[in-house]
C-alpha cells in the first residue's frame, strides 16, 4: 500500500501522515465480504498485493455512490460480480 502516492492527494492521501502505515514495510491486507458499499465522500484504497473479494463471486455487489472513490493500486485486486456505479469514480492509480 502506498498512500503517499501523489495521485491520491485529492482524496486526502498523498502526504506524510504519522497515523498511516506506509508502503511495503507493512505488508498487505486481505478482505473478504459479501458486498461492499461506498457512500457519501468515502474512499477505499487497495494497495499492491492486497485484495478485496466477494465471499461468493457470483453474488457480490460493489456499490459506489455519493462522491466516493474506489482505488486499486497497481498489483491490487478487487473481485465482485456486480458493480453498481451510481456516482463517484473508479480508477486505477499506479505508484512508485
Amino acid at each position: 500500500m502506498n498512500l503517499l502516492d501523489s495521485a491520491l492527494a485529492d482524496l486526502g492521501f498523498g502526504e506524510t501522515n504519522e497515523q498511516i502505515a506506509t508502503n511495503a514495510a507493512t505488508g498487505t491486507g486481505t478482505v473478504t465480504t459479501d458486498n461492499l458499499t461506498l457512500a457519501g465522500d468515502s474512499v477505499v484504497v487497495v494497495g499492491d498485493g492486497s485484495s478485496i473479494t466477494a465471499t461468493t463471486l457470483d453474488n457480490g455487489v460493489l456499490q459506489i455512490g455519493g462522491t466516493s472513490a474506489m482505488v486499486l493500486q497497481t498489483g491490487a485486486s478487487g473481485n465482485f460480480n456486480v458493480l453498481e456505479l451510481n456516482s463517484g469514480s473508479l480508477f486505477n492509480a499506479g505508484h512508485t
Binding site: G27, G29, V31, T32, D34, L36, D41, S42, G66, S68
Partner: peptide, 19 residues
C-alpha cells in the same frame, strides 16, 4: 488493514463505508 491482516465478514456480512 495492514501487515498481512485478513478481514472476513463471512457469508452474510457486508462492509459499508460512509461519510
Amino acid at each position: 488493514i495492514v501487515d498481512g491482516a485478513v478481514l472476513d465478514t463471512q457469508d452474510g456480512g457486508d462492509i459499508a463505508v460512509d461519510g
